[in-house]
Amino acid sequence: MAQTDSAPPDLLAVQGSVSQRQLQDGLFAIVGLLTILVATIILLALVLQLAIQGFPRLTWQFFTSFPSSEWQQAGILSAWIGSALVMLVTAAIAVPLGVAAGIYLEEYARKNWLSALIEINVTNLAGVPSIVYGLLALGFFNDLLKLGESILTAGLTLALLILPIVIVTTREALRAIPNSLREAAYALGASRWQMIWDHILPYASGSILTGVIIGLSRAIGETAPLITIGALTFIAFLPPAPIQPSFPYISLEWLQAPFTVLPIQMFNWVSRPEPEFQINAAAAGTVLIGMTLAMNGFAIYLRYRFRRGVKW
C-alpha cells in the first residue's frame, strides 16, 4: 500500500532524469529551429535591405547608361551586356566539355589509375579558390596565349571554373538512369555511342540542364578571377555587335573586346568613397541577386519536376 503511494527513491530518480532528458530534447528542438530561422532571416533581411536601397535606382535609364562620374547618370549598360557575352562564351565552352567529360567518366572510363587521376582532379579543382583561376588566366591565357584582357579570356576562365560543377551533375544524372535501358539499347544492336546519344542523354538532359544553370549562376556572380585578368571598371562603349548588317553578317570581333561585368561594376561602386555610389551599388546588387536567384530557383524547380516526373 505504502509502496504504491510513494514510489521508491530509485524510480523517482529515474523519472526525474527522464523528464530532464525530455526537457533537453524539447529545448534542442527549439534551439535548432531558432538557429535555422535566425540564420535565414538575417540573410533574407540583408537581401531585402539591399533591394530596398537599390530599388529607386532601377529605372530604364539605369539599364541603358554607361558608367559615369555623376552617380545619377551612371548605369550598367556595358556591365550587363558584358556579363551576357561572357556567359555566352562560358556556356559554349563549359557545356560541351563538361558533359563530354562526365560521359567519359561515367560510361567509358575503366577502373584504372588514369580515370582515378581524372576523378581526383575534378574533386580538387572544385576546391581551388576562384582567384587562382584568375591567376591561371592572367599567366596562361593572357601572357602565354596572348588572348588579351578580352571577353574570350574571361569566358574561358569562368568555363574552367564551373567545369567541375557540370561534370559532377552530368555524372549524377547518368548514374540515375537504370542499366536496363542501356542493356535494351545494346540488345537491339546499338553501339555504345548510339546508346548514349539516342537513349541515355535524352533522359538525362533535364538533370544536366539543372547543373548547367547552377554552374552559370555561379559564374555570373564571380568577381575575383575577372579582376585579376584586368577587366576594366570604366567602360563607356559596347563591344562590336555579333551580328553585322553587311557580309559576312556574323562577326567574332566582340570576343577580343575589353569588357566589364556586373559584379565588377558593383565592386567598383562599393569601393568608391562617395556614399551616393553605394545606392548605385545596391541597385546593381539587386539586379545581380535577382538574376542568380532566378537562375537557381529555376534550377531547383526543374529538379523537383524531373524528380517527380520520372518513375523507373
Binding site: L44, L50, S217, G221, V270, G285, T292, N296
Partner: peptide, 12 residues
C-alpha cells in the same frame, strides 16, 4: 538559394 548569392554582394 542563399548559398548562390554572389560574394561581392556579401561584401556589400
Amino acid at each position: 538559394l542563399l548559398a548562390g548569392i554572389p560574394t561581392v554582394v556579401y561584401g556589400y
